[in-house]
């Protein structure tokens, strides 16, 4: 069954900013679906439209077959949402935060006690439940935030930048919890991130979004493969008159797509796959022409390359044009209301 279906979603904020510009996709049940894009790309707005916090300008959304605009009450009961900001009240204890969240979802105290213990144990917070949240570390706060989103046993969990600003260990721990939710608790998970690594590590499928449009959507492996295989960078120890012959021999090897050379003697060889297995063969071949290999390097495409290929720039804030920067700022403010 489809967990989420989004058709031609458009959101234009006051002032004419197109935050989301005709996005369509589906998420399958028990899938971890990643939304990858720079700041201001439209990730948060898309999530907020799906869970009914922001009214779409156009387009339709279904969650488990229920129309979000028609039946927001039903939809809200089947979704859990942890926003980008860790929305924990730090003057309350962990348990009080969870308890209130349960009451806001109209659970009975008995249900909250049973379910609350379960999620707090799952997230390793049970022992600290009676401490004020202001004594928690950043990672604990995020875990509590996600635990709160799970109190009413949602079928699908929306995580907006779940590991933003966390250190590497904490981030890995959060990843483990997310995987556990899917593997052991059969949950569907929609997460947005601008960490390539996170999308790659967690997601079954990734959509790359920028300027409110989906630029690519596939399994992380397929996205990488589509960029065109491995790249071998080769440098020879000597310049020889037999070099041109060697290069054409390399070109003729099976699996080699392209070969380019720079004037200072660096050669780039694109191969379809298994670049690591081709390296010994290349060295052998060079030796048979009497040419020594000085250095060799293999680079496999990462999701970074895919991302850069589609968005054409690195982190927006770093080198954004002023216009884009302003747009991103306005968007973030709009989204936060």
């Amino acid at each position: 069954m489809e967990a989420v279906r989004v058709e031609n979603l458009v959101k234009i904020y006051h002032g004419g900013i197109r935050a989301v510009d005709g996005v369509s996709f589906t998420i399958n049940e028990e899938e971890i679906f990643g939304f990858l894009g720079p700041n201001g790309a439209g990730k948060s707005t898309t999530i907020k439209c799906i869970i009914g916090l922001v009214r779409p300008t156009a387009g339709r959304i279904w969650i488990f077959g229920v129309d979000v605009e028609r039946d927001p009450g039903v939809v809200k009961r089947s979704i859990g949402y942890a926003a980008q900001e860790t929305a924990v009240d730090d003057q309350l204890t962990g348990w009080e935060n969870l308890y209130l969240q349960g009451r806001f979802h109209h659970l009975s105290p008995k249900e909250i006690r049973a379910r609350g213990e379960e999620v707090l144990r799952l997230f390793g917070l049970w022992e600290r439940r009676n401490d004020l949240a202001q004594t928690y570390s950043g990672g604990m706060l995020k875990r509590l935030d996600i635990a709160c989103a799970l109190i009413h046993r949602p079928r699908i969990l929306f995580l907006d930048e779940p590991t933003l600003g966390l250190d590497v260990q904490t981030r890995k721990a959060i990843w483990d919890y997310i995987r556990k939710l899917r593997d052991e608790h059969k949950m569907t998970i929609f997460l947005t991130t601008h960490y390539m690594e996170e999308a790659d590590e967690l997601s079954d499928r990734v959509a790359i979004i920028d300027h409110g449009k989906i630029l690519a959507l596939d399994k992380p492996g397929a996205l990488k493969a589509a960029l065109g295989g491995d790249l071998i960078t080769l440098k020879f120890a000597s310049q020889d008159e037999r070099l041109p012959a060697l290069l054409s021999a390399i070109r003729a090897l099976p699996g080699v797509r392209d070969l380019r050379s720079s004037p200072d003697g660096i050669h780039w060889i694109w191969v379809e796959q298994r670049g690591d297995q081709l390296i010994p063969e290349l060295v052998q071949l060079a030796l048979s022409y009497g040419i020594q290999v000085d250095s060799v390097r293999l680079k496999r495409p990462t999701l970074d390359d895919v991302y850069l290929h589609y968005t054409g720039r690195e982190i927006r804030e770093a080198e954004a044009s002023r216009e884009e920067h302003v747009r991103a700022r306005i968007l973030q403010r709009r989204v936060r209301r």
Binding site: E85, A87, V88, D89
Partner: peptide, 9 residues
């Protein structure tokens, strides 16, 4: 702090 949004969701 985003709590309002959590309430609205």
């Amino acid at each position: 702090i985003g709590y309002l949004e959590k309430l609205l969701a």
